[in-house]
Structures are given as C-alpha cells and as structure tokens.
C-alpha cells in the first residue's frame, strides 16, 4: 500500500521532491563509493583474477591497523578539542560585538577559504625546526619537534587553527540568534558572567558544538594531506596508510587500501552515530 501523501496534515511530497536531486547524487557517491571499496576490500572486485570472498586484505594490515586506528583517533580527538575550545571562545568574543569581536570574525572568515594544504605548508614554514619561529628565537638546535615529532603537534595545530574558524562561525550563528536573549534573561535573574557561561551559553551551544565537533572529528580522521605533510613516516594515521597502499606499485595492495578506508569509514560512522545518539537525548534537539 502506498504511503499517504500527507502526515499530520503536512504534505511530505513537495519536500521530498525538492530534496531528491541532492539526495540521489550524494547517495550515488557515498553508497556507490563505499560499496565499491567494501567489495574491493573483501576480494569481490579484484583488479586481476577471479573474485572470491576473503578478509585477506584486512589480515595483511592487521599489524599496523591498531596503531593506525589509535593514532588517527588521537589526532582527530585532539584536533577536535582544540578547534572546539578555540572556536567557542572566538564565538563568545564575536558575539560581544566590540571591535575585537569584529576582528576575530574577520580573521575567521578569512581562514575558511584557505585550503588545508596551504595551511599545512604555512604551519611547516612557521613551526618546523628550520621554520620562521625557530630562526626568530634563534634557539640553536633546541627547537622542539613540533613538525614531524612524536606528538604530531603540527598536524593538530593545523587542524585546530583551520577548523576552529569553522566552529567559531557556526557557533556564532547559534549564539547570535538564540543565546543573546537568554543571556540577558539570565543576567536579570542574577547570573554573573561565569554562571551564564556555565548555565546558559555552554548548554545552549552544545548541540551546535556537537554537530560541528563531529564534522571536525570526521574530517580530521579521514583527510590525509596535513598528516602526510606534517607528520612522521611511521606510525601512519589511517588515511595516510590508505593513500600509500593505494599508490603502491603492486596492484594487490589496492584491496588493502580499500580495507583501511573501510575501517576509517566505520570509525567515522561510529562518531556520527554517537553524536546523533547524544543529540536525540538532548531536549534542545527535540
């Protein structure tokens, strides 16, 4: 039986038709791409030879995958925390509407269109042991390993800088449209600045922060260029590992690259599912 064209007095048909082109294209790319990668990782879409169901590609990388997963999650988590802290603080400054807020908003807006690869190159030029800051402070070889070091600080700094601008602008939208009136109400109920931050601004921004944090986390988890440029050769984060395997001279490494990509995708889905579960429990989201 065909579903009714209206639910609760509202017709769903026009909305569905309007969204259909975007949904179809996104579904083709995402579902099609993932299905191909999954099939390739399971041996069902080999470049040479007959297809056969196998987990050999996953087993081949079993030694490196746990380290790669841990490293990728750590970089993504650290980048997300830095981006959210800096971005939320910037949003608070922007919403104040004073000259410094306007300056921060302008800097944030300018940051958004800069490509990550340019950002990574800039971080390298600034923070590497042969970079501008090292020469400026003339540290004489004692400059810490910020780029290519064991703590992946350059990578986290690049993601934190670039994504904090994204977080700031998204959260500013929420604060400017919703939180100002609530903030004033709380003020007149006797709440000082810190109390308002704790009891009003942070709770009201949490859904927006959660969404933007999820986007930042998934992006940092899945993109390769910053970690590839600013990170160490070993251990490798998952996307760098997938890229290396994909570009390997031996064609049999392609299923292994697909396996690493599928593992990265599962982690991303896990992050999104966790965020949506939290949001569905939030009274602000309902």
């Amino acid at each position: 039986m065909a579903p009714p064209a209206s639910v609760g007095g509202r017709s769903w048909l026009p909305g569905t038709l309007m969204a259909a082109p975007a949904v179809l294209i996104a579904a083709f790319v995402v579902v099609g791409g993932m299905a191909t990668a999954l099939a390739q990782s399971l041996g069902l879409f080999p470049l040479v030879g007959p297809p056969s169901l196998t987990v050999a590609a996953y087993a081949a990388q079993a030694g490196d995958l746990p380290v790669g997963i841990g490293l990728s999650l750590a970089i993504a988590a650290a980048s997300t925390v830095v981006a959210c802290l800096v971005g939320f603080t910037a949003a608070l400054v922007i919403v104040q509407g004073r000259w410094c807020g306007k300056l921060v908003a302008a800097l944030g807006t300018l940051t958004i269109p800069v490509p990550h690869i340019v950002g990574a190159a800039s971080v390298s030029l600034l923070l590497a042991d042969s970079g501008l800051l090292s020469r400026l402070f003339n540290t004489g070889g004692s400059w810490p390993e910020l780029v290519g070091g064991p703590w992946w600080i350059g990578v986290v700094a690049e993601y934190g800088w670039k994504e904090s601008a994204f977080v700031a602008l998204v959260v500013t939208g929420t604060l400017a449209t919703r939180a100002v009136s609530y903030d004033e109400t709380a003020t007149l109920l006797g709440a000082g600045r810190l109390r308002r931050l704790r009891h009003i601004l942070i709770p009201l921004s949490l859904p927006t922060l959660t969404i933007s944090a999820t986007i930042v986390f998934v992006y940092s988890l899945g993109s390769y260029e910053v970690a590839w440029l600013l990170g160490r050769v070993y251990p490798e984060p998952l996307p760098v590992m997938a890229l290396r395997l994909f570009n390997a001279a031996t064609l049999t490494a392609r299923p292994e690259a697909a396996a690493v990509a599928i593992v990265t995708t599962i982690l991303s889905f896990g992050a999104v599912a966790t965020a949506l579960t939290y949001l569905n429990r939030s009274p602000l989201w309902r």
Binding site: S181, T185, L188, L189, G190, G192, L204, S282, P283, L284
Partner: peptide, 18 residues
C-alpha cells in the same frame, strides 16, 4: 544588571529550553 535586584518578563517567555 545582575546586581540591580530586578527581573524582567518579556513578550516571549524565553524559558531556558535545556
């Protein structure tokens, strides 16, 4: 404002949604 001993009710109730 938080120390003036006043409270305000506006046209919209502005109840904290969380």
């Amino acid at each position: 404002p938080e120390r003036r001993g006043m409270a305000m009710v506006q046209q919209r109730p502005l109840l904290f949604p969380h």
